[in-house]
Design a protein around this nucleic acid. Structure first.
Length: 364
DNA sequence: AAACTGGCCAACCGCAATGCA
DNA sequence: CTGCATTGCGGTTGGCCAGTT
């Protein structure tokens, strides 16, 4: 009896999770209602489609469209998200192509997978900026692995390869732009701060975004100053294995900027070249922005996906799957996190605005 | 107030790897 | 072994938004 009740509670809570998560996604992401695309069957179809399938209505025209091979592209609707989440709940994050072949969504398997991985997966730190620590980690890992974003992302709790890639890309663009254009010190950008050219490098702790920029401004403002170029070319002291330093001035500057004084970064092996600490497994804990803590109720489970395989249930959603999925609500078996705070703490306040709008069963 | 610019991010595309018949 | 389907990954694009001119 207890089990049954627990299952029902879990089911209910998971449904809430599904609803809230999809609402959250769309509260956080900008719904592009004005994409400029003409309203056509392409636009109206996908939203209506799940209703057709879910409610087992028949709309011959739309079914024909689907059968004709119509594939929707572009932004995802909350309805589509819900359908996708239901599929993943039922079958696990797999069989992406079957979502289309079963007629659940007019999306390609690739598109579905991408949506799940980047937006719907549990424990994603959606809308949360990279912390200084994450930034530093990305820089280190990128130097170690190159542009292996998926690999790098496994070391960053709650970040997708797309997140890392975008972060790196915009960071790189920023740096490029700053190097291309001699900085003009604008007073309004340095309110209450020392003039950038007075910043002492040795006082700058390991990189945060602002500090990186300040450092860069400091460096670029001294372009042409031999002393600075000597500093930039310190890789032999700091990161001797960087081969590309001399050929890529941008990288050189990045390294200089990113190069933290050795004594402040215990994880660096300074004596035997640039040996990053071995990272056989994704890091399980790292500092977060205070506002991000709530988004990550428990350590990331790198085997999350595997658990679907181990716990594949013959029909519907079993309680084990729910346990796997429910960590996003703090139901991972940790009694402390099942408090009311823990239950909804990973949702922004916005979500409850949406939530209140959801009609109750009696209203429906 | 309008135009411009840069940052951010979601999503697409092409290619490679893998699995399977 | 081969060909096809599926999955995963990295690069790229395009749209929105906020800040600046």
């Amino acid at each position: 009896m207890t089990c049954i009740l627990t299952s029902y509670v879990c089911m209910f809570v998971f449904e809430l999770n599904v609803i809230c998560r999809t609402r959250t996604v769309h509260a956080l992401t900008r719904e592009s209602n004005h994409t400029g695309v003409k309203p056509s069957i392409s636009n109206t179809f996908s939203g209506a489609f799940y209703l057709i399938r879910e409610n087992i209505e028949t709309n011959v025209e739309m079914e024909k469209e689907f059968d004709r091979g119509y594939i929707k592209k572009g932004p995802w609707s909350s309805e589509e998200d819900e359908v996708l989440l239901r599929h993943v709940t039922k079958y696990g994050p797999r069989e992406w192509s079957s979502i289309r072949s079963k007629g659940l969504l007019p999306r390609t398997g690739k598109s579905c997978r991408l949506r799940w991985v980047n937006k719907l997966r549990p424990n994603l730190k959606t809308g949360c900026k990279f912390t200084a620590e994450e930034e530093r980690l990305v820089i280190e890992l990128q130097a170690q692995f190159g542009n292996k974003w998926a690999k790098i992302a496994t070391y960053l709790h709650g970040r997708t390869d797309n997140d890392v890639k975008n972060f790196w890309s915009s960071r790189r663009k920023r740096l490029e732009r700053m190097l291309q254009r001699p900085p003009t010190l604008k007073p309004h950008k340095n309110k209450g701060k020392l003039p950038l050219n007075l910043v002492q490098v040795e006082k700058v702790p390991p990189c945060s975004s602002n500090q990186v920029e300040e450092n860069l401004s400091y460096l670029t403002s001294y372009m042409g100053n031999n002393e600075v170029f000597e500093m930039i070319n310190l890789p032999d002291l700091i990161k001797p294995n960087y081969q590309y330093l001399e050929s890529d001035p941008l990288s050189a500057v990045e390294v200089e900027v990113d190069a933290t004084p050795l004594h402040t970064v215990p994880s660096f092996e300074s004596s035997s070249g640039y040996n990053f600490p071995l990272l056989p497994e994704p890091l399980m804990d790292y500092p977060l922005f205070p506002e991000c803590h709530d988004l990550v109720p428990e350590p990331f489970d790198p085997n999350f996906i595997d658990e679907f395989e181990q716990k594949k249930c013959s029909e519907g959603v079993c309680s084990q799957e729910l346990e796997t999925m429910l960590p996003t609500l703090g139901f991972e078996g940790n009694s402390q996190s099942t408090s009311s705070n823990g239950l909804f703490k990973d949702f922004s306040s916005e979500i409850f605005e949406y939530f209140e709008q959801i009609p109750t069963s009696s209203e429906v």
